[in-house]
Design a binder for these strands. Structure first.
Lengths: 150, 150
DNA sequence: TTTTCTGCAAACGATTTGCATACAC
DNA sequence: GTGTATGCAAATCGTTTGCAGAAAA
C-alpha cells in the first residue's frame, strides 16, 4: 500500500532541527500529497497554491522545497527541462525503486517499478567500496503512444 | 578497447545535416577527446580553450555543445551542481552502461561499468511498450575515501 | 521576547538570443 | 555569392539573497 507522510511527520522533523511549523510549509507539503505521482516544479507549486486561496511568495516556495527535501519528505530531481522538480519521497520500501521513463518525443514522464537495482547496489558496494544511499534512474526513449503514431 | 570519434565522424555528421565544419566545432570536440572520462561544463570547455591559444566565444561553446549532442557525439548530463555537463558518447557498446557514482560528501563523480540494465530495458519494453533509446543512472552515496575519514 | 520565517525586490549565474560581421562551401 | 556560423552584448529565466516586518515558540 502506498503510505505517505502526515503533517505530524512534518512537525516532528521540523522540531528535530529547531525549525518552525508554518502554514506555508504545510500547504507546500499538502500540494504534493494532493498530487501523487506528479513531478512539480517550484512554479507549479506556486501556481497551484495561488489558484487555491493560499497567498505565498515564490521565494518561500523555493525555501520550503529545499527544506522539505532536507527533511527527506520530498525528493529533488532534474528532467532536463531547465528546472528542478520534486515528488513525495514515499515511505514504502516496496516503492523505493521507481524509475522514470522519459519520452523524448512528447515529453511524458511515467514511472516503472523495479527491484533489480538492489543487486546492482550490492555490487557497487563490494567492488567500489561506495556506499549507496540513493539513486536516480532515467530512461529516455519513445513511449507506446508516440510509437504507434508513426 | 575504448574507441572514440574522429574529426571525420564530425565532418560527416555535420554534412548530413547541412551544417558547416568550423575550427570552433573541431576544437570543442577535441577538448573532449583530450579529456576522456571527465564531465565538462561549458565554462570548463571555454576555460580550457582559452588557456590553449584558441580564442572562442562562450556563446559559441554553448552552441557547439548543443550541436555535438544532437549529433550524438557528446552526451549531456546534470549532476545537480547548477550547470549542464557533457562527456564523449563512446562508440563502444561494452562501455554503453557506465553509471555515475556521486559522493554527496566530497562531490567526486566516478564511473561504474555494468550490463544489468539490459535485462531491465527488455523488461520495460515488454511491460510498458516503451522503447528505450538511452538511460542515465546516478547513485548518490559516500565514496570509499569519505567513509574511511569518519 | 527571542528566534526563525516570510515577502518583496534586487542580485545572481547559467544559458539564450539579436544582430552585424566573418567564414565555409 | 549564398547561407550558415561567430562574437559580442543584451536579454532571459530559474533560483538565491538581503532586509524589514510578521509570526511561531
Amino acid at each position: 500500500m502506498a503510505q505517505t507522510f502526515t503533517m505530524d511527520d512534518l512537525r516532528q522533523r521540523l522540531q528535530a532541527r529547531q525549525h518552525k511549523m508554518t502554514p506555508q510549509r504545510q500547504t507546500v507539503l499538502q500540494v504534493f500529497l494532493d498530487h501523487p505521482g506528479e513531478h512539480l516544479s517550484a512554479e507549479d507549486v506556486h501556481g497551484i497554491l495561488r489558484q487555491g486561496k493560499s497567498e505565498i511568495g515564490l521565494a518561500t516556495v523555493y525555501r520550503s522545497l529545499e527544506l522539505l527535501s532536507e527533511l527527506e519528505l520530498l525528493q529533488k530531481m532534474e528532467f532536463g527541462d531547465g528546472c528542478s522538480r520534486y515528488e513525495v519521497n514515499t515511505t514504502d520500501p516496496s516503492e523505493h525503486h521507481h524509475h522514470h521513463l522519459i519520452c523524448t518525443t512528447c515529453g511524458a514522464v511515467t514511472e516503472f517499478e523495479d527491484d533489480l537495482l538492489d543487486d546492482l547496489e550490492a555490487d557497487i558496494q563490494q567492488k567500489m567500496g561506495f556506499h549507496v544511499l540513493n539513486h536516480q534512474v532515467k530512461f529516455y526513449g519513445t513511449c507506446k503512444e508516440c510509437q504507434s503514431k508513426n
